[in-house]
């Protein structure tokens, strides 16, 4: 893996001056992924925090070619860019290698963009799709998404007198991508930057459709102090709330096995979105969440052992 020193002499895809919240987590995801590419890159983004904060006309924070089309179609849009590139390669109008990257939030990836993503993956385009997953529609004020975990407080499924935030579990998008039989799918989180950079590097070394699901704490929606973005992110992996793993040609590899699996309450209590769960009457929910995490973790380890 390239060292941080080596990465630091590459071209940062973003400048300062974008309007992401102080302490946001997605600009680092973008930087880590893009810096991992030795070759030039072209970026497409779904509508969402990333696109909105980095391209307020006439100020673009992008230093690399960037296209935004709409909310649900980043994968389809990038598949068109990639097809044009192939056409130009064939005609000898372009020669250099370019890596194609799409970024979408969890709304634009898990929910409204799932069909477009699935289609692009099935067609086998040579591109990397990265979901910066902050587990709700943060750009439009913290509405629930298919990625929102059980018990989280959101504005469209808030905690109240009779309901304790989201009732359902999050869907397992990484496994849905694995089920597309793509050559590379992975889960990462921004606080474990070395793991993410290594996964991005690996993704760029492989041809075909690739997917990385990156958990990104959001200080606005998760409600914590801005300096804690990276540390809370690591807590998600240390509690196995968000296991770090990769699946290369069907072969599972867990890339972080906490020496001592921390209890989930350590992660939950670090953010106000779960505060209501610590009301004594909600203890059963905490127990349930821990159980599910333990079950999923064992299941993942079993897949790796196969």
């Amino acid at each position: 893996m390239a060292t941080l020193k080596e990465l630091s002499v590459r071209k940062d895809p973003l400048t300062g001056g974008h309007r992401a919240c102080a302490g946001c987590g997605f600009p680092q995801i973008v930087r880590m992924v893009c810096l991992a590419s030795k070759d030039p890159i072209v970026v497409v983004s779904a509508t969402g925090c990333l696109e909105v904060t980095t391209t307020i006309f006439p100020y673009s924070a992008w230093t690399v070619p960037f296209l935004h089309n709409a909310f649900e179609n980043a994968a389809a849009t990038l598949s068109g860019v990639e097809a044009a590139y192939k056409a130009f390669l064939k005609k000898g109008k372009i020669a250099k290698k370019i890596n194609f990257i799409a970024f979408g939030g969890d709304g634009g990836t898990y929910d409204i963009g799932l069909q477009s993503l699935s289609g692009a993956m099935e067609r086998g385009h040579n591109l990397l799709y990265v979901c910066y997953n902050n587990q709700a529609y943060m750009n439009t004020s913290i509405q629930r998404s298919g990625a929102t975990p059980k018990g989280a407080n959101t504005t469209t499924e808030p905690a109240g007198k009779v309901k304790q935030g989201k009732v359902q579990r999050q869907k397992d998008l990484t496994e849905i991508m694995v089920a597309h039989n793509i050559p590379y799918a992975a889960q990462a989180t921004v606080g474990y930057w070395a793991d993410l950079v290594r996964k991005a590097e690996k993704a760029f070394s492989i041809d075909g459709p690739r997917f990385i699901n990156v958990l990104q704490p959001c200080r606005l929606g998760w409600v914590y102090k801005p300096e804690e973005t990276m540390s809370i992110s690591r807590l998600a992996a240390d509690t196995c709330f968000w296991p770090l793993y990769e699946v290369e040609n069907g072969k599972y590899k867990v890339t972080l096995k906490p020496k001592e699996k921390k209890p989930i309450i350590e992660f939950l209590k670090s953010q106000d979105r779960f505060r209501h769960l610590f009301n004594p009457k909600n203890e059963t929910i905490l127990v349930e969440i821990q159980k599910e995490i333990d079950y999923n973790w064992e299941k993942l380890l079993a897949k790796e052992a196969k």
Binding site: L4, K5, E6, L7, S8, V9, D12, L14, T15, G16, G17, H18, A20, A22, G23, C24, G25, F26, P27, Q28, R31, M32, W193, P226, E227, T229, M230
Partner: peptide
């Protein structure tokens, strides 16, 4: 690598300070 605002300045693989014009103080 951890700064959201590309506001830690570096040169030749060494940290050199901050870009206070853009640093949001997170």
């Amino acid at each position: 690598i951890s700064c959201p605002d590309s506001s830690v300045t570096v040169k030749d693989g060494k940290m050199t300070g901050f870009d206070y014009k853009h640093c949001k103080g997170c």
